[in-house]
Amino acid sequence: MDVEQNQPMKHAEQNRDSRFEEAAGTYGSALERLARAYEADPDVRRDLIQEILIALWSSLDGFDGRCSLRTWVYRVAHNTAASHVARRMRIGSRVFVGLEEAVELADGTEGEAAVEYRDQIDRLYALVEQLKPLDRQVMVAYLEGMDAASTAEITGLSARNVATKIHRIKQVLARRFRAGGGATQGLGEGGRDER
């Protein structure tokens, strides 16, 4: 009788485990890129990836198909990573900027036509890491090739706000990475916070 009663639970656990294998297999690399966007220190980043995977595995108990597995995975990953950033904020004194400010923020290398591959990746991360978590999520989703609707579903922003942010992301990328760009203005102090 006990064996029969345990069957549904065992089945649910197997479901969770197989969903986890599927999610980790499909989105493993994307999750690593996401973790890199939130944590620059390689050792701490490995811990963050593990934390995301544990949170994902635990959460899949409650996965009921109301959203796609991809949306679920990204929500868990972003929420875990943002909590990680909030914890690190309490320890350090790092401030983040919004996309509005990032448009005006120079990184000193604008307009260089022949930038090495590694440099470009590093500069992308340098840009992403200075953004507030919500803007960072939109930026990561954009770079991962997600459409505005998926980004809105993950972040909870309205489609209109996602569209505005994507417009600003394009402006930032244009200033930072296109030849001929030239943002030289300094960064204003107002509006920096953890959000």
Partner: peptide, 19 residues
């Protein structure tokens, strides 16, 4: 504490708002 088990049901805005 650990991330809530319903983290996948919450968007970042909902999740952060609750916190």
């Amino acid at each position: 504490s650990a991330l809530p088990r319903d983290a996948g049901l919450s968007t970042y805005v909902e999740f952060k708002r609750r916190e």
